Amino acid sequence: MLLNSFLWAAIQDYETAQANSENDQQIREGLERAQRMLKQSQKRDYYKILGIKRNARKQEIIKAYRKLASQWHPDNFQNEEEKKKAEKKFIDIAAAKEVLTDPEMRRKFDAGEDPLDAESQQGGGHPFHRSWNTWQGFNPFSSGGPFKFKFHFN
């Protein structure tokens, strides 16, 4: 990715500058910002998952979530391979909604931290994870999960 190459180059430049001027606060802040941006670029982008702009309001987020969740719901797929792909996509869509509709989680995400990433959390994980099988027992299709689905048939 072009962005990652740019960020790696920026980090190297900041590290070189810091070696020549160890006490420069501006260089240290630039290095930390570039490192944070690189880390975030390598993780899930919840805005991109939902296909919304970074300044989207809660109503827009929920609308995008509903549209994508109904499109990618695993029950819509019969083929096992397609179903597994849909499950992963559905999990990412639910995680994006979870983060972007919670003001504190969204603030953390916008600051470069993934509030659902166990690596960035001290103590305790989260129910969303990249792998369906390692969801720590969370299943959005069971009655015990945080999501409640009601299906209305005509």
Rank of each mutant, 00 (worst) to 15 (best):
L2Y: 09
L2A: 13
N4S: 12
N4E: 09
F6P: 13
L7H: 08
W8G: 09
A9Y: 12
D13W: 11
A17D: 08
A19D: 06
S21H: 00
R28I: 15
R28M: 12
E32V: 11
Q35N: 07
Q35F: 02
R36Y: 06
S41G: 00
R44P: 11
R44L: 14
D45L: 00
D45K: 04
Y46D: 09
L50G: 05
G51I: 01
G51R: 00
I52G: 03
N55G: 05
N55S: 02
K58D: 02
I61N: 06
K63G: 14
K63I: 11
P74Q: 06
F77Y: 08
E80V: 08
E82W: 13
A86E: 01
K88D: 11
K89F: 07
I91W: 12
I91C: 07
A95W: 04
A96Y: 01
K97C: 00
L100R: 04
D102H: 12
E104N: 10
E104V: 13
R106A: 14
R107N: 15
K108M: 09
A111Q: 08
A111N: 07
G112M: 08
D117V: 10
D117P: 09
E119L: 12
S120Y: 15
Q121M: 14
Q121V: 05
Q122D: 13
G123C: 14
G124P: 01
H126Q: 02
P127I: 14
P127K: 14
W132R: 07
W135V: 13
Q136L: 13
Q136T: 12
G137A: 01
N139C: 00
N139D: 01
S142M: 07
S143E: 10
S143K: 12
N154M: 15
